[in-house]
Write a protein that binds this DNA or RNA. Structure first.
Lengths: 345, 345
DNA sequence: TGCATCATCCAAAGCGCTTTGGTCAGGGAG
DNA sequence: CTCCCTGACCAAAGCGCTTTGGATGATGCA
């Protein structure tokens, strides 16, 4: 059933039918009702491709997900983020296009989705400290919103980010207040902007209290359970072992905990942990009383916000150029069972 | 730059240019080279929508992901699965369309992507023991492949699944051989087909050794760390506590471990754990020597296989109806550090 | 009554591609 | 020399929609 068929059944022109369905004013209320009723009855739905071709709008948003060939890790945060974003797209009638491509093909992929006209805009994931994708997208004139920020990027662009610096400052201060002096940071890969900022927050908090960051207590890498375990084992084996750990992910924190248990140390008494918690739906930090003391910021919510921002930019951008938008989310520190005063010895 | 422009620059007709680029024989080798060279130089890429409209093929695969309103969980397995599938799509020139919709809207969504013609086929996720989506897709004549199976579904359909029954049989036998008699099963939601089969395997193995499954030792629910913890705490508090746990997910297993630690029990000595391991990239079960004894089956690989199977079905199906295909994956049992002989008391 | 206005509808021209059904020249067979 | 292929190209008709630029008759107003 296509528009023409429907029009014939109604003894109307395709023009009128199209207009009736798309809410144009130059059609009488009576016929509009008739058309809508018929469309429902015949289960008519406009062909996506035809509509797109005619309007020049793809009604789709793209997410280009790089699959790194070195560290073959799919970001665990990813599922929740796209759940949030996808929810918004679906409600707004946009399609959600995903491209999973090897790291090196990203550039080509962006150019391609641009010149093939398959999307109206895209979301940029996992921005680096300095990220060439931003200027590429700008150059391509493809509307985009960055999930995160890129510190070394000069020009303006739209983003949604949590306040990484502030969060890790707060977490560090909290540990210092509890008497901890040797605090370890188990961070993500620090070419990633978020990890860089977290480290900054950590160091700034230490400096503000006259403490000097110790490189031996700062690790950076893929945020997995194994990372937490391995780094903790290594750090606790050396002299000057930390009495507290600050981790960038719940998974790492779980690894730290495993190491502590194995060494016979009690969490929250012998050693404290504060982690960042992305509030992933399948990896909850306990219920009312959290297992880990954590800074929390829902990645799913970030997904929703990114999507909404992008859609708004696109809709507005139809008429005139729009200024970039920003959304800075605060991550409160929620006290759980994993922290306590530094041991007195 | 569109086809017409390119044709004008080359002083050729759009027909010839189109044919040259799409590898049709009725164009001389000389002009083909010329056309290809020009296309590259002008960075020409055919407009997706136009191509689709003209060919009637969407060159896209859909994944409809239900967001349950009750248990707001995004399947953690999901990210790895789509990474695998997406990789294949990208390589084959297919787009990857995702629809994140509320549970109740699934039906409508499938009908919609069908009548709007936005995809050539789709992957069905998380099949239930009895799943109406299968007959819906059959009725819609939309090619599809199921990731998993649906036991109560009568007619044929294509699927990729791991041998859940065999895997859990094997795991249970292994524990019985180690002397365990009170074995707990911490399973996924048993309306899901995979969970149902796992339970079957578990019960069959017990029965084969003359053991009777104890309902008090069988839990079913969302597979989270908290689930593992809570169920373990409950079971160990009751008389007739299990000496071994069989879990459906690494996350649950981690929860079990946390409970054991809290109760001062030693893993692999006082209590054993065997888990299923989906081999998620961000949640590895240790390196060479696994932390948990586990049946292992890569979900990412399953994603690749589903995608390949679906694409093959679609390509073949262009000409004649194709018979459904099946792919049953074996999940070997890999011995790790979490199992040992049952305590003698 | 006459003219402008308006509400309501329609024909036809795109959107950028593929594909059908040609044309046309050159070459081999008869 | 003619006839018929055949290889190489092209014009034009779709694909299913939107949108421009009318057409038509009813209404308002002087």
């Amino acid at each position: 059933m296509n528009l023409k068929d429907l029009a014939e059944k109604l003894k109307l022109s395709p023009t009128t039918v199209s207009r009736a369905l798309n809410g144009y004013p130059e059609v009488s209320e009576a016929t509009r009702v008739k058309v809508e009723e018929a469309a429902r009855r015949f289960n008519y739905r406009p062909n996506t491709q035809a509509k797109r071709l005619a309007t020049g709008r793809a009604m789709a948003i793209g997410h280009v997900i790089p699959i790194s060939t070195q560290h073959e890790i799919v970001n665990p945060v990813f599922a929740d983020f796209i759940a949030g974003a996808g929810e918004v797209y679906a409600r707004s009638g946009y399609d959600f296009l995903m491209s999973i491509v090897p790291d090196a093909d990203q550039d080509r992929t962006y150019r391609e989705i641009r010149s093939k006209g398959s999307v109206d805009g895209c979301i940029l994931h996992g921005p680096l400290l300095s990220d060439p994708r931003i200027s590429l997208l700008r150059e391509l004139r493809l509307p985009f919103v960055v999930h995160g920020r890129s510190t070394l990027e000069a020009g303006p662009y739209s983003w949604v980010d949590m306040n990484n610096i502030r969060a890790f400052q707060r977490a560090t201060e909290f540990l210092i207040d509890l008497g901890h002096r040797r605090i370890a940071l188990i961070n993500g890969i620090e070419t990633m902007d978020f990890a860089h900022r977290r480290r900054l927050g950590f160091e700034q908090a230490l400096a503000a209290r006259g403490l000097v960051p110790n490189p031996a207590l700062m690790a950076s890498g893929e945020m997995t359970e194994a990372q937490g375990y391995d780094e903790t084992m290594a750090m606790l084996a050396r002299p000057g072992a930390p009495t507290a750990f600050l981790t960038s992910s719940l998974l790492s924190a779980m690894g730290v905990r495993r190491a502590l248990v194995e060494l016979g140390l009690v969490l929250g008494r012998d050693v404290s942990i504060v982690t960042h918690d992305d509030d992933l739906s399948y990896l909850k930090n306990g219920g009312e009383y959290p297992i880990f003391t954590a800074t929390r910021s829902s990645v799913r919510d970030a997904g929703r916000r990114c999507a909404r921002m992008l859609l708004r930019q696109i809709e507005l951008g139809q008429k005139a150029p729009v200024p970039p938008a920003f959304d800075l989310l605060d991550a409160p520190l929620i006290v759980g069972a994993s922290t306590g005063p530094a041991p007195s010895i």
